[in-house]
Structures are given as structure tokens and as C-alpha cells.
Design a protein around this nucleic acid. Structure first.
Lengths: 333, 333
DNA sequence: CTGTTAGCGCATTCAT
DNA sequence: ATGAATGCGCTAACAG
């Protein structure tokens, strides 16, 4: 920038003014400075600028489980889009369900002085964020943080699961199985709750042998499905709720359920679900990321970022889900 | 950091030494400083540190088309993993096939002084990157930049398409159609080239009516498929090559091709392709992102980043593809 | 081993 | 309307 100032024969400050579009510079100097910028191919160092001005780095940090999972990729897409509307860039990191790694990543993001932090929490305790003196907004996505008073954007997991199970019960099923992931995850617990609620509402006794959790990969879910299908006919489920997209994919790989007369409803939409005629509980990961980002950065548009120290009670937003009927859940018992 | 120094009763520089793990600090002062850091919950400002030391921001910039596309999400995953091995964070941005937007994003990344730039180019000319005085490595992914001398990591598009078409010809097909995206894209052109090569090798005259390009969405590809299927039997294709995953998904939505006796091979793997028995040309987006990141950051491990000014000729790495036979391509004519 | 000084690239404050 | 001085938070280059 000093070079530009010399080339244009003005002071450093004048260049700064021109670059930031501040008023109060005579038009001939503006022209000169712009010419010098062009000639020297100068690009402002945003890092240095944010260091001095202290207004923020215009950077948002996102911690998800894994960009490779379409569900989280969609969340990341929404956050990126929203950040862009706020002239911010997005640093995306994947914690892979590892609380220690999550903390490392969050710490690294805080060291970079991100303006806001959006987290799909793997760990349970996030007080260290506030302890680190982070003044920006923290918003949790998909799962709340247990010990932290912060905004969270969730989906109505229990209602979704209940909807799905009730749907299958309506179609005559009484032996409904649940294949899900780790009960240590909020979403899995909530979906389990919805499942048991639906059974209770229909006065169907809970059968533990029909509940298979802890499946974090589709292959693991496939194995669980095979075990369920191998049960003696009397104990075998006639309907299945797969509690996330990995589990649904795994279940599909276990064999032709429709031919076997077994109903299936999957939690979460997935590509080709329509083609395969799989009934699903549709969630909106894009909307979730978008709402979370807007909570952190302020409403869309060129509105100013909300004051960081503005205290308002932590919000918990729960997005609705919907049942998309495509055939697989309507197989009758 | 000044606070820490005062709390520990040492100089600012000593704190700096402790934080950066430099040798030459007595252990009692180390203890004191660490205690102060703990008490004050101090976290170093990495931005300021990189500004002063000038070693780089430990940040990598990635420009892809869209994180929402599983193919690019996988690339992003690989780049993130590799960046992590180099203690770097990743800023991911989506250009959505818009050259102007791409340039905006690249400029924003340069202003942040990213250490390296990884780009799936939407535009054709990227000389402005060097013009901006960028000293880090630039690596192009999936497509080369026409007017820029820089590393590129590609896949063997032509060979893949040729493999696919030859495969279907081997199974007796002579009316093979191609459904692809915009011919303005390098990958699409290369795949078209492989397609025509395969036909030429089998001495099958090229039939323009069987080539349908410019399909950037699966819906558009579906429409194209419907038009092909609506051709009079004599002109109708008996085999199809869909030139990317969007097109394959679109084709699948056009109807039951197997029942219609039409062979299909898709370019790029996609989830549930195995279940659906779709023969594909498998590419390795993860590997592509990984190789690109290593080209930019140096080989994996804690090896030092390659000297930025080290001049070596630009490399063009072409990754192999493989045909995965699952049934849909083996329908006989 | 430790502290002092200077300055990374820029914006703020207050002069003029 | 313009510029000089000062400092953001930190580290490099020197002292001592």
C-alpha cells in the first residue's frame, strides 16, 4: 500500500481512503491512486485490515461431522450461501464425531478470530468456547449442546419418527423395528423417543429385540437388517424405521424388503429415494444451515451484523419435518 | 498477550516464546506463563502472528462448483483432510459455474492471503491470479486452465468415455447415444472425444441426433432422455452413455431402461449405483482432491511446505478411471 | 536465558 | 481535503 502511495504521489492514508471508498478525496487523486493500484496490481491485505480495525475477520467457522455426508454437505452449502450474503467467507471443518477433534478445530477457528461459530456438536460440553472469551455468536446445528446456553437450530426428530411409525402402524404393522445410530447422539435418542411414543400411542408393547442402535455406517446397518430378517417369522419385524440416511442405505442393501412384504420408512431424504419408491421423513438440512447462519450473522441482506455483545436469550428453533409417501412404507402387514 | 505477560511477571517476548514452544526459557517461567495463560484463558491471535511472521496464514482456499454436488463434496473432503495434515484450515467456496463469481471468490481468497489456491475452474483465463502477485501455489482440479501455466490434476475423461462406449459396442450396440453437459466444459468435451473415438474405432458413423449436450441439471438430462426414447425405433439409441452423475440420475428418472432393452453406462460413481445395478466409469474425486492438495502443500506428513518460489515446470497429473460392471451396460442389443 | 526495540500492513485519531 | 503519528497483536532481530 505504501508502494501505491508513492507511485500515486499521495499519502498512505489517501490510498486507504480510496480503497475503502471513503468520502473526502478529490477526484483527481482518486484517479491517480486507482491508476497506481492497477499498475502495481495491488490487493489489500484483508487480514491486516481486520487486525487494525477490529471489526471482525468476515469469516465464519463451521464444524460439521463430515462434508462427505450429503446431509452435512447441504448444511455447509446453506451456510456458505448465507455467509456470502454477508460478505463473509466460510472455513469448513469436519470433526468426524470426535469430541477431542472438535475441540481442536474450534480452538483453531477461535485463534483465527472467526466472527461466528456454527457447530454440529460431537462433544457435550462447549463451555470452553465462552471461557476462551469468544465474543461472537455460537449456534449449534442439528443437536443442542447440553451444557451451553447458546442458540440451536434443530429438526423435530421425535415428531418425525413418531409420524413414520404411526404411518406404518396405520398400515397394519405391529412389529416395527428401529435401526439407528449411536444413542449417545441427541438425534438418535430423540428419534428413538418418537418411535416409542408411537408404539405407546397404539398400545403396542415395546420389544427390545426390534431396536438396533449404534450403527454409524451403512454396512453396520445392513448387518443389523440381516439379523432382523433372520429372526423366526414370529419375531421378525414387518416394518422398519431407519433413523438416518446411512441406515436407510444399509437397509436397502440387505435385500428386497418389498418383496419380503416388509414396510420401510427412512429418516432423511436421499437421492433416488423417489426412484426407488422409498417413503421418507423429509428434513431440510439446507434450511437448517440457513437459519443457523442467519441467527449468527443477522438476517439476510446487507443488514449490519448484530452487535456481538447484544444479549438476548438463547433461541432454540425447531424445524418441522414431513412424511413423503412413496410406497415402501405402505406395504401392508 | 500483554495481560499474560503482566500476570506472569515476565516480558511479552517470553510469553511469545512459551506459546510457540521456542527453546531457551527457564522451566519456572514456563510454568508461570502457562499458569497465567490458563487463568486468563488466553488464545493466541493467529492472524496477528501470521501477519508479523510472514510465514503464511496456514489457510488454503478451494473454489469448487458446489458443495451440494457429491462429486465436489468428496473433493472438498480430501482437500480438508490433506490441509489438516499440514495444520492448515480450508476456506471452501462455490462458484456455480460462473466465471465472474469465481473471480470474485479468488480475489477474496487472495486478499486473505491464503497459502495455496485449489480451483475447479469455471472461467478460462486465470492470469489475473499471477497478475495479483500471488506467490503461493495454484492447482487446478478436474479441468485445466487454458491460459495459465499451473499444476492441474485431472482424470482420464476421454479414456473413460471410450471404455464405456466400447463396452456397449462389444455387447452388440451400434446406436449409442451420449447425454452430457455443456460442451464449454473441458470434461464434457473430453468425454465427447472419447465417445467419438470409440465409435470411430468400431467404424460406426457418428450420428449427431444421438448426441445431446448442455444438460447441467438432472431434469434437463431426463428431458433429453425422453426425447431420445421417443425417436422412431429405427433411429432410437439402444445404448446410452451419461456423461456425469447428474445426467445419469436424470436418465434413470426417464423410465426403466433395462425393461426397454437399452444399455446404460454412467460416468462417475453415485450412491446406490450398486443396488440399482448401474455400470459406471468410476472416477476418484477424493484422490483428485488429495493429489491436488499435496501438490500445493507438499507431500503429506509434517514435511515443510515447499518453497513458494521454487520453480518447477507445471505438472499435469491424469488419474486413471475404471469401468465397474454391474449389469446396466451389459444389456444386449 | 531474557528483555528491548522495531515493524508486519493497515485503519484510526487528530492534526493541518 | 489531506497527512503524520500511533497502535492493532504479535514476532524478528537484536541486544544484554
Amino acid at each position: 500500500m505504501l508502494d501505491v502511495a508513492q507511485a500515486a504521489g499521495v499519502s498512505l492514508k489517501t490510498v486507504s481512503r480510496v480503497i475503502n471508498g471513503e468520502a473526502g478525496v478529490s477526484s483527481d487523486k482518486v484517479t491517480k491512486v486507482e491508476a497506481a493500484i492497477d499498475k502495481l496490481r495491488y490487493a489489500r491485505n484483508d487480514i491486516a485490515a481486520s487486525l487494525r480495525s477490529g471489526v471482525g475477520s468476515s469469516t465464519v467457522g463451521l464444524v460439521i461431522e463430515d462434508v462427505g455426508n450429503p446431509f452435512y454437505a447441504r448444511v455447509a452449502q446453506a451456510v456458505e450461501d448465507t455467509a456470502r450474503e454477508h460478505s463473509s467467507l466460510l472455513i469448513t471443518t469436519s470433526a468426524r464425531e470426535d469430541p477431542a477433534r472438535e475441540r481442536e478445530l474450534v480452538t483453531a477457528l477461535l485463534r483465527r478470530r472467526v466472527d461466528a461459530l456454527l457447530i454440529v456438536p460431537a462433544g457435550r460440553d462447549h463451555r470452553y468456547i465462552a471461557d476462551a472469551g469468544f465474543t461472537g455468536r455460537t449456534v449449534f446445528i442439528d443437536r443442542p449442546s447440553e451444557k451451553t446456553e447458546a442458540d440451536a437450530v434443530l429438526i423435530d426428530n421425535a415428531a418425525g419418527a413418531q409420524l413414520a411409525v404411526r404411518h406404518m402402524i396405520t398400515h397394519g404393522h405391529r412389529r416395527v423395528a428401529l435401526v439407528g445410530d449411536s444413542a449417545s447422539l441427541y438425534t438418535a435418542r430423540e428419534r428413538l423417543r418418537g418411535y416409542t411414543n408411537a408404539l405407546a400411542a397404539a398400545e403396542i408393547p415395546l420389544d427390545e429385540t426390534l431396536i438396533s442402535m449404534e450403527h454409524s455406517t451403512s454396512e453396520s446397518a445392513r448387518q443389523a437388517m440381516l439379523e432382523l430378517l433372520a429372526l423366526p417369522k414370529k419375531f421378525r419385524p414387518t416394518a422398519i424405521l431407519t433413523a438416518n440416511n446411512r441406515c436407510t442405505v444399509g437397509a436397502l442393501h440387505a435385500g428386497d424388503l418389498r418383496k419380503a412384504g416388509i414396510a420401510l420408512v427412512g429418516f432423511d431424504e436421499f437421492e433416488l429415494a423417489d426412484l426407488l419408491g422409498i417413503t421418507v421423513v423429509r428434513t431440510d438440512p439446507y434450511r437448517m444451515g440457513q437459519v443457523a447462519a442467519e441467527l449468527a450473522l443477522g438476517p439476510s441482506g446487507d443488514a449490519p451484523r448484530p452487535a456481538e455483545d447484544e444479549q438476548r436469550p438463547a433461541q432454540r428453533i425447531v424445524l418441522p419435518v414431513e412424511l413423503v409417501v412413496r410406497g415402501s412404507g405402505e406395504v401392508t402387514a
